[in-house]
Computed example of a mutant assay.
Amino acid sequence: MTYRYHDESIVKALPEDTIFVFGSNMAGTHAGGAAKTAHLHFGAMKGVGRGWSGQSFAIPTMNEHLQQMPLSQIQHYIDDFKIYTKNHPKSKYFVTSVGCGVAGYTVEEIAPMFKGISHNVIFPASFRPFVEKALPKLNQHFLHTVFSDAVIFAAQPEEAVAELDLTENEKSAAKIILNTQIYPTDSNGRDRIFEIQDILHVLQGKVFNFQHSEDDALMFGGAILALLELYSINEKDFADTWLGKQEISPPKAASKSKK
């Protein structure tokens, strides 16, 4: 399942059908971070530390004494939220980095708890590797198969990916890469051309000999940038994997839970 994502910048307004989802404490103090934003701009009520109020939805990550909740308890409240989104399908849900601020947890610990939620959710971009299908290990075969003109410039990328000699998880990753808007602007309207040009400069002659028009080269480089961001790697990692010098494991959820 593929979700929509936001760039985690501070928002002060959302469409009427979109609910602001934030991490809270059971006391409902809403004194800082996304909770304060929810109170100031999205109708979160003081004293309401759980569930819907105004244009917001609170997921507790701290107790009434402002102490960190155990992950197992947070999972319980996230499961409640999953049910809420399923029962209210006409609304969209703008999820912030719940539990990753004052509560002190990491994205790797929190994001996997949302896996399998309804499709009407907009996640922070950092959650992506943990809520999509499991990402595959990057290897030479995957890169050579996906980063070809026949795939990158296909009129129907989804159909092109379906025909590739890849596993289902690899096809899922390929679709994420090809569907990630980077060029001419990314999904948040930011110009990424200088970043793409830097990538092309580093890889030219070492991995590729680009013989494309400028627009096509930038589109190709944009797909590479999408991969680098998805796996949190750099151009050298890409080049070494392309040349078969290494394989790269995907981002994984932390195996240790905080008590």
Rank of each mutant, 00 (worst) to 15 (best):
S213G: 15
L138W: 01
G189Q: 10
E8H: 06
F127W: 08
P184G: 13
Q204C: 11
F114W: 01
E64Q: 15
S213N: 11
M113T: 06
S72L: 09
K245N: 15
K236S: 10
K245W: 08
A173R: 08
P250W: 11
E159M: 07
I193K: 01
H212R: 15
V102S: 03
K133R: 13
Q156P: 04
A154C: 09
A154I: 11
Y77V: 06
K175T: 07
F130W: 14
V131C: 05
Y231R: 03
I233E: 07
N234T: 09
Q181C: 13
E229I: 05
V48M: 03
S232T: 09
Y3W: 08
K245Q: 15
V48S: 02
I74R: 06
F94I: 01
I177P: 06
S97K: 09
P15K: 08
G205K: 03
Y231G: 02
D17S: 10
L164E: 00
S24A: 07
G99V: 10
S97I: 06
I74S: 04
F22H: 03
K252A: 14
S249K: 06
T241P: 13
F114L: 04
V146N: 06
S118T: 12
R128E: 12
L164Q: 02
Y77D: 03
A254L: 06
A58F: 09
V121F: 01
G23E: 02
K36C: 02
V11C: 05
A239Y: 08
M1K: 02
N139H: 13
Q204Y: 12
L178E: 11
M1W: 04
K12E: 07
F153G: 12
N87V: 10
S24M: 04
S213D: 12
T106W: 01
A34R: 05
E109I: 07
H88M: 09
A34W: 12
T185Q: 02
E163A: 14
Q55K: 14
I182H: 03
E109M: 12
Y5R: 06
